[in-house]
Design a protein around this nucleic acid. Structure first.
Length: 214
DNA sequence: CTTTGGATCGTCT
DNA sequence: GACGATCCAAAGG
């Protein structure tokens, strides 16, 4: 093989190795609306598969009617009420898994939904059980598709993303977030539709939904 | 490119 | 019993 397909590591090569910066838990201790755009260009890794985050949505706690945490703790959203840096995975529409990064002060139940990735490594694994004609561009385009591509399921709910040898990890390979990310209303919700809490990398083809709004 | 309708079941009321 | 933080295939421009 010729690509940088090493498990979890950043793209490697003589002279071009970006320094991998560990993500600190304090980096995720702020409110979801601040952490969400900061997460753009970070890397999500599971097993030998990884992708760069290019689209996110912020979800608040008790004060956000669109959040799963609205209305208080339940068995499903329990991880949201825990410490920042853990993965909140939920099942929806009877067939899809979606993944969030828990953030904010413990107990505030805030999270950032990861909506799209640029596939970086493990592309062959992501293509398993996909039609031969399935475009690579769509592998991680959408919150449920990226979970399917990385193999994230309810078994990963509660995973600490900041443990170096963890099953699912959040990595900073040195690429800073975009200075001027595009933003707009969150997708697929029916309440609090006016809050522009979705951010994405302007012009990136791996972003889901409409990208015309600013 | 866009629109439309069906799939499918855990979760909470 | 209703409703999803969605996706896919099919059909039309």
């Amino acid at each position: 093989m010729r690509g940088p397909d090493r498990d979890g590591g950043p793209p490697s090569g003589p002279g071009t190795v970006p320094r991998t910066v560990p993500v600190e838990r304090d980096d995720l201790g702020g409110d979801a609306v601040d952490v969400a755009p900061w997460l753009l260009h970070k890397v999500l890794v599971r097993g030998g598969r990884s992708g760069r985050i290019v689209e996110v949505e912020a979800y608040g706690g008790a004060d956000d009617p669109a959040s799963h945490a609205f209305g208080g703790p339940t068995a499903r959203n329990a991880v949201m009420f825990g410490p920042a840096g853990h993965l909140y995975v939920y099942f929806t529409y009877g067939m899809h898994w979606c993944a969030n990064v828990v953030c904010g002060p413990e107990g505030s139940a805030q999270a950032v939904l990861v909506r799209a990735l640029t596939p970086l490594s493990g592309l062959e694994g992501m293509r398993t059980d996909r039609p031969p004609t399935f475009p690579d561009r769509d592998l991680c385009r959408g919150p449920a598709r990226l979970c399917r591509a990385l193999g994230i399921t309810g078994a990963d709910d509660g995973t600490d993303l900041l443990v170096p040898d963890g099953t699912v990890r959040l990595v900073d390979d040195g690429m800073p977030p975009p200075g001027r990310p595009a933003s707009g209303p969150r997708i697929g919700i029916s309440r609090a539709v006016d809050r522009p809490w979705r951010w994405w990398v302007t012009g990136d083809r791996h972003v889901s939904g409409r990208t015309g709004v600013v």
